[in-house]
């Protein structure tokens, strides 16, 4: 990577590198993204390929993690599952980032009545537990990958709205904003070019941690049968169908769970590391 000398990005990167846990998280994530992108090449079998003669086989050389109740290769399904989980996590967080972020920025920048209305609406949404709201939304939208993303995304809009509002409030009174306004910049330009770049640090941290939450929510929804439907591999959904085979085929309910936990831990490591690296003053 090319950095300008002592740029913010470079300093952050150097500080991040000193944090071993964050690097572990980053490496795991890169590996996961690699797996997700090249799932077609990496998976030994197709995720939907059934073979009833080979159903419910324990891990072996031909099926490293065994086969499920339809004789499908568990490893291949886990690999494709990584693609689904990461997709849901990233898209859902992008949805809440764009929606919540703009609402929060508008509330913080304009203030007054508009701020009051937006934040009260966010408070109302916050008084429904997140997972419950996600369940209600996905019940309303019906099952499917895209609807799952929307449900998970909308349910964490208030978190981003609050965060961005707070950051905008702290930045908007600064002199460089006043200078920009004095030079005749419009509201949109001031917010997009002058205020937002200064709110990036908490936003990046929050987004990383929220991807973890989104993946957990998506797995939960699929587990109770609301998210992604059976033939499609999703870690939560795989755990749900493995529940019928606890006696004798315990491995079926082990591997998807391990995959979820590793992903979440990696994201949490990276998120915490980024927080420390981006804001060394507030080291926790």
């Amino acid at each position: 990577m090319i950095f300008r000398k002592n740029s913010m990005l470079r300093l952050t990167w150097v500080r991040l590198c000193r944090n071993h846990l964050a690097i572990v998280g980053l490496v795991i994530l890169v590996a996961l993204i690699f797996t997700a992108v090249f799932a077609d090449v990496l998976a030994p079998y197709a995720y939907f390929k059934q073979s009833l003669r080979e159903r419910l086989q324990a891990p072996s050389l031909s099926h490293w993690l065994g086969t499920d109740e339809f004789g499908r290769d568990v490893l291949s399904r886990l690999i494709y599952g990584a693609r689904v989980s990461l997709q849901v996590g990233l898209v859902a967080v992008s949805i809440s980032l764009v929606l919540g972020g703009s609402l929060g920025a508008i509330a913080g920048y304009y203030g007054g009545k508009l701020d009051h209305v937006i934040m009260r609406v966010m408070d109302i949404q916050l008084s429904i537990p997140t997972i419950l709201l996600a369940i209600a939304i996905s019940a309303a939208l019906g099952p499917g990958l895209f609807n799952l993303m929307i449900a998970v995304g909308i349910s964490s809009v208030p978190a981003f709205a609050r965060l961005l509002r707070a950051s905008v409030l702290s930045v908007k009174e600064m002199e460089f904003v006043e200078a920009a306004r004095a030079m005749g910049a419009g509201d949109l330009r001031i917010v997009a070019l002058h205020i937002l770049p200064n709110c990036c640090a908490p936003l990046i941290v929050q987004s990383t941690l929220r991807v973890a939450n989104a993946i957990l929510s998506a797995a939960s929804l699929s587990f109770i049968g609301l998210g992604i439907q059976p033939p499609f591999p999703e870690w939560g959904g795989m755990l749900s169908s493995a529940r019928g085979y606890l006696r004798g085929n315990a491995y079926l309910s082990l591997f998807p769970g391990i995959a979820i936990v590793i992903t979440i831990i990696a994201l949490n490591f990276l998120g915490d590391g980024l927080r420390d690296a981006l804001d060394p003053k507030q080291k926790r």
Binding site: A212, S220, L239, L246, A250, S253, G257, I260, V261, I264
Partner: peptide
């Protein structure tokens, strides 16, 4: 605690059933 935060509670439940019931 780190693992506890990262663990979906339905999986924790399944693991407990596996160990203590099965």
């Amino acid at each position: 605690a780190l693992i506890g935060v990262a663990m979906p509670n339905f999986w924790l439940g399944i693991l407990l059933i596996l160990l203590f019931s099965v």
